[in-house]
Write a protein that binds this DNA or RNA. Structure first.
Lengths: 112, 112
DNA sequence: TTTTTGTGCAACCTTTGGGTTGCATTATAT
DNA sequence: ATATAATGCAACCCAAAGGTTGCACAAAAA
C-alpha cells in the first residue's frame, strides 16, 4: 500500500505521536502509554508513520525507539507554501473575477 | 460530522481540486471534467472541502462557482512550521541522544 | 412550452481505517 | 531455568471513505 505523508498526518493521533517524539525518541510502549487506546492501535499508527518515512525505528535490546524524521514534513510545507503568495496577495475576489463580462444576475436561490 | 483541514488535504484528488481553483474559481462541472471519476464523486469532494472552509461556493444562475480559501491552509502551515526549527537545528541524533548513560549494546537482531 | 444543462442528493457497494483480543518471540530480570 | 517485559502480528469488527447509478429540480436555451 502506498503511504503518503499527507495521509499520515491526517489522523490526530498520529500528529500527537509525532509531537510526542519530536524532541526525543521514545520506545513503542512509552508512546502507547500516553493514549487511551491499545498498544496495538498505537503500534499500527507508528508502523504507518515509518512506512512514509516520518518515523524511524531503532532497536536497542528488546526496545524499539521511535525517532521523528521531521524533515519529511517538507513535502507538506512545500505544498502549502506554493499557495501562500496567492492567499496573501489576492486582490481579485470571486465577485471581482466574475464581475467583468457577464454581470452576475445575482439571484436568491431557493435552497437554504 | 466534524471536518478537519488535515483530513481534507489528505486525499490527492482534493489537493488537485484545490490546485485547480487556486487561481480562479470554476463551477462544479468544470472541475469534474478534469477527472476520470464521476461528477458526483467530485461533488462529494467539493462538499467536504466546503465543510472545512477550504472552498466557498457562490451561485450564479444555475451554476455554482467554487473558490479556494487558501488562507485556511494556515492551520497546516502553522502545525508544520512549529517543527522546522527542530529539524533544521537537530544535532542530536538518536545515537547521540541515547549514547549517554546506557551505552546501547547494539545487537544485530534476527529479524530482517 | 419543451428541451437541455448544471447541480444536489439518496441509495447502494466495496475498500480502507482505526480499534480489539490473543498469541508468539526475544531480551532482561529473578 | 523461569518469569516478566517489549514488541510484532494475525484475525476479527465496525464505521468511514470514495465511488457509482439514478432521479429530481431549477435555470437557460430552443
Amino acid at each position: 500500500m502506498r503511504r503518503d505523508v499527507f495521509q499520515a498526518i491526517a489522523d490526530p493521533t498520529r500528529r500527537e505521536i509525532i509531537n510526542m517524539i519530536a524532541h526525543h525518541p521514545l520506545n513503542v510502549n512509552a508512546v502507547a502509554e500516553n493514549f487511551e487506546v491499545s498498544r496495538t492501535a498505537i503500534y499500527k499508527h507508528i508502523k504507518m508513520l515509518t512506512e512514509c518515512g516520518l518515523v524511524v525505528i531503532t532497536q536497542f535490546g528488546r526496545e524499539r525507539y521511535c525517532e521523528a524524521r521531521l524533515d519529511r514534513l517538507n513535502e507538506v510545507s512545500d505544498w502549502v507554501e506554493q499557495y501562500r503568495k496567492i492567499w496573501t496577495e489576492r486582490f481579485d475576489s470571486l465577485g471581482n473575477y466574475l464581475g467583468e463580462g457577464d454581470a452576475p444576475k445575482k439571484r436568491p436561490g431557493k435552497r437554504k
